[in-house]
Design a protein around this nucleic acid. Sequence first.
RNA 1: CGGGGUGUGGCGCAGUUGGCUAGCGCGCCGCGUUUGGGACGCGGAGGUCGGAAGUUCGAGUCUUCUCACCCCGACCA
Length: 419
Amino acid sequence: MKFSESLIKTRREKVKEADSINADLLIRGSYIDQLASGVYTYLPLGLKTIEKISSVIRDEINKIQGQEILMPVLQPKENWQKTGRWETEDNLYKFTSYYSKTDLVLGPTHEEVVVPLAKKFIFSYKDLPKYLYQIQNKFRDEKRAKGGLLRGREFIMKDLYSFHSSKEDLDDYYEKASNAYKNIFNKVGIGSKTYKTFASGGSFSKYSHEFQTESDSGEDLIYLCKKCKVAVNKEIINEQSTCPECGNPKLTEIKAIEVGNIFKLMSKFSAPFGLTYRDRLGEDKPILMGCYGIGLGRLMGAIVEVSHDKDGLIWPIEIAPFKVHLINMGDNREVLTETKRLYEKLMKKKIEVIWDDRSESNGVKLTDADLIGIPIRLIISNKTLESKAIELKERARDNSEMIQYDNILTRIKEIVDVK
RNA sequence: CGGGGUGUGGCGCAGUUGGCUAGCGCGCCGCGUUUGGGACGCGGAGGUCGGAAGUUCGAGUCUUCUCACCCCGACCA
């Protein structure tokens, strides 16, 4: 991608509406644009990043046998009445069809869709277990949107629903999902600051678990056991005031962002819809369910909160919109020729590269590169031409290195693979 | 949903006690000079002041209503 052809216009000044680091940096870097309170457009850079995150999530969920589907955003009122949430949920976007006068909900979650769906496909113990997930926009009429991507009214979410014939099977899968979540958060670069956290489990199971990423912009207070790297949400700290793993009574209070949540639903949603299966003896038994959510935009925001410096974003290589940010310094013929040659070489090798081919001053290009936060910066200038080398600097490091032309691909691959 | 704040070219802002063609910086367009950390000169374009109603000889400045955004709380992936 050439910078000059992209939809990137960085901003110099702080964004007035931005109430958080992620909102400020993502807007200034042309990753997102705010349309309304808590409602954002993903621009090319932002969408690429979201797609990288999606891909990490898909890989891990597919590994635990998740099957991807795509359910409707429009959901009929009747299903929500059946579970009682038409009345109890206060952040549903409800509206009435102009023509048919039918009442509808913009989906904030999909139990009301996936359970009736499962009824059409799951009849027998032979059909179980099943794991269905989707990545889709959700809508919640939040009283107050805040924190940039951390709490929106429309947001992208991965929601996985599991269906089981027994509590043991559900328990087993719940652990698998928990491990998949750990892998996901490791891969997107926030593993070391993300803690499995015991949270309220509602009426059907004692606890649910959240994955909480330590950050001052977090809305949640959690109590962390530094030995086990496990935490307890403030909402249950009275009933669980020691580390659930080792009993350690010395927990540290930290602020955190909830990037994921896993929940044993048991028969909470299967019951109202009469979702059952026939067992070996010919008896009808309730199907037990789990649900497992990750907000992708929130995750992206959390990554920014964790990984940035005063100059801008610092993307972990796995989810960066590009691997390489190529800059020609100056635009004399030799520099341009050599930069173009390198650009094409990288493209040919399928290394995702953005070339800042603008005739901006060097200062502007360097500052923008820092802001946008691509992991590997390559520079070609008169200086580098003299030594027949390319300057390589990693966004996350302070020092740069000079790489001979023939070694550049190898060096890039080293950096990409190590991470 | 309660309390508070802010709306002025694309972005960030200034605009005295109401007063004449609404300013500034950045960005944008043209020409030229520049190029290792947000270059410079010259010349341009662009706003009717969130919206509506009102007070007044006169409103960006005052009043009322309204919309939007932001903050603080209570609730939540």
